[in-house]
Amino acid sequence: MKITLTGALGHISRPLAQHLLAQGHTVTIISSNAERKEIEALGGIAAIGSITDADFLARAFAEADAVYAMVPLDFTVPDIRAHSQNIGRAYAQAVRTSGVKRVVHLSSWGAHLAEGTGPIIGSYEVESSLNELPQVSVTHLRPGYFFQNLYRFIDLIKNAGFIGANYGGEDRIVFTSTKDIAKVAAEELTATGSEKIRYLASDDITASAAAQIMGAGIGKPALQWVTFTDEQAFAAFQEAGMPVMIAHLFVELGAAIHSGAIREDYDLHRPIAGETKLRDFAREFAAVFGEKVV
């Protein structure tokens, strides 16, 4: 098969490309010029351009049997929702122009909601654009909270001795490994048919249980995940130098996790169970934790 991937050589697209290339597929990877040599060394075909350019995308999608579409978060844009809408429309236009019949879109838990999910609102917008495509098989992969997001708490653990956010304690979090996402994406891209929406969960545990697992890995078995108020979380983001707009988005996202709204649709579906558990990731976290100097 001929498959085109977006996402450059990121945490998901790199292992995804490796899975597909190992299976003998022809893989084109959309990226910036800086990664051309690395893509070619991997065995892929580099397509250098921007995912906001529908004409470029159409050329990159030409003759492809399937396309993997994702939207990297960009906190430098003034309006994340509008930015995602533009990319979603570019994807949809490129698919129509190129004639691609199979699209696997990296979405997110909470993408069923049109409001109140912070940066995840972008996934809702891209899903909406792709759902309008006629005679195209589209599958939205909806993973949960990436394990890598836990790295942002390293400084707080070292300075304050706990994990803290405006969600925590007994709030249940759907954690997902990017390695598991890559494996499922590879399976979906080469499948003849699939469900419209597929949730992915590597672990589904409380924040307190997650803190215990992470704490055990770094020699802090009593580590706690403290629940802040929205106001406390916003103040902490501001103190860390986060722009006001971005701070508001993350507070909104945290509130959706705390209320359970973000996982309402997830709880109505049987997710694909990932192989990588938080205990596995905890070893990687411990290595980074030990190396990082505050």
Results as ranks from 00 to 15, higher is better:
residue 215 G to C: 06
residue 204 D to W: 14
residue 183 K to M: 13
residue 199 Y to Q: 12
residue 203 D to T: 06
residue 176 T to N: 01
residue 194 S to R: 03
residue 175 F to K: 09
residue 174 V to D: 05
residue 222 A to C: 07
residue 213 I to H: 01
residue 172 R to L: 07
residue 212 Q to C: 05
residue 206 T to K: 03
residue 181 I to G: 04
residue 177 S to M: 07
residue 187 E to I: 14
residue 187 E to K: 15
residue 191 A to F: 09
residue 212 Q to E: 15
residue 197 I to R: 10
residue 203 D to C: 09
residue 196 K to C: 05
residue 187 E to F: 02
residue 178 T to N: 12
residue 198 R to N: 12
residue 188 E to P: 04
residue 204 D to P: 13
residue 189 L to E: 05
residue 223 L to Q: 03
residue 174 V to P: 00
residue 205 I to P: 08
residue 222 A to K: 10
residue 199 Y to S: 08
residue 185 A to C: 14
residue 219 G to C: 14
residue 203 D to L: 06
residue 202 S to D: 11
residue 214 M to R: 09
residue 195 E to N: 14
residue 182 A to Q: 09
residue 193 G to H: 15
residue 194 S to H: 11
residue 183 K to E: 10
residue 185 A to P: 04
residue 179 K to Y: 13
residue 179 K to T: 11
residue 213 I to R: 01
residue 183 K to N: 05
residue 170 E to Q: 13
residue 200 L to S: 15
residue 184 V to P: 11
residue 197 I to V: 11
residue 202 S to L: 07
residue 204 D to T: 06
residue 204 D to H: 14
residue 171 D to N: 12
residue 177 S to K: 08
residue 211 A to E: 01
residue 171 D to K: 05
residue 178 T to K: 00
residue 201 A to M: 06
residue 175 F to Q: 10
residue 171 D to C: 05
residue 179 K to L: 15
residue 209 A to F: 00
residue 211 A to S: 03
residue 219 G to D: 13
residue 181 I to A: 07
residue 211 A to I: 01
residue 217 G to R: 07
residue 172 R to P: 04
residue 191 A to G: 05
residue 186 A to V: 15
residue 171 D to Y: 07
residue 219 G to I: 07
residue 178 T to M: 05
residue 179 K to Q: 15
residue 176 T to R: 01
residue 223 L to S: 00
residue 195 E to K: 14
residue 222 A to G: 05
residue 190 T to P: 02
residue 201 A to W: 05
residue 217 G to M: 03
residue 225 W to V: 00
residue 214 M to K: 01
residue 199 Y to P: 08
residue 224 Q to C: 04
residue 211 A to Y: 02
residue 218 I to A: 03
residue 195 E to R: 08
residue 224 Q to S: 12
residue 204 D to I: 12
residue 168 G to R: 01
residue 194 S to F: 01
residue 195 E to S: 08
